[in-house]
């Protein structure tokens, strides 16, 4: 979502936040998590894992809203999210919009 100005109550808004963990060598590079992450937190690596697959990298760690979708869509049990402290959004982030799917 994109705002035309910074909301006045921004300091009271809390966004859930998750800490993404990736079990790199269990990944088979299907890309489901990268494609369906609603905040585009992930991107495929250019590197290979031990099995020769590209795996996801966390490129916008801050934007994770702990929705767990990557965890439950991953067919390999190779990615999961642990709870992290909720955070206050940055004014800049609110003005720019969160991720690809919402732009």
């Amino acid at each position: 979502m994109t705002y035309w100005r910074v909301p006045l109550d921004l300091d009271q808004v809390e966004i859930p936040h998750g800490n993404i963990q990736i079990i790199v060598n269990q990944c088979k590079g299907c890309g489901f998590c990268v494609e369906y992450c609603p905040k585009s937190v992930l991107a495929m690596s250019t590197d290979f894992n031990r099995k020769g697959y590209h795996y996801p990298n966390i490129v916008k760690r801050n934007l994770c809203v702990n929705c767990n979708l990557c965890e439950i869509i991953c067919p390999e049990f190779a990615i999961f999210v642990t709870d992290d402290k909720p955070r206050h959004p940055d004014p800049e982030e609110v003005l720019k919009g969160g991720g690809n799917h919402e732009g």
Partner: peptide
Amino acid sequence: MSKTTTGFTNKLEIPTPREKLHHPMDR
């Protein structure tokens, strides 16, 4: 997949080795 492929820029983002990670569904 190519459209979402980006470089791997930040060294700090190198994920933890799997030996140390326990998936919540492991049980």
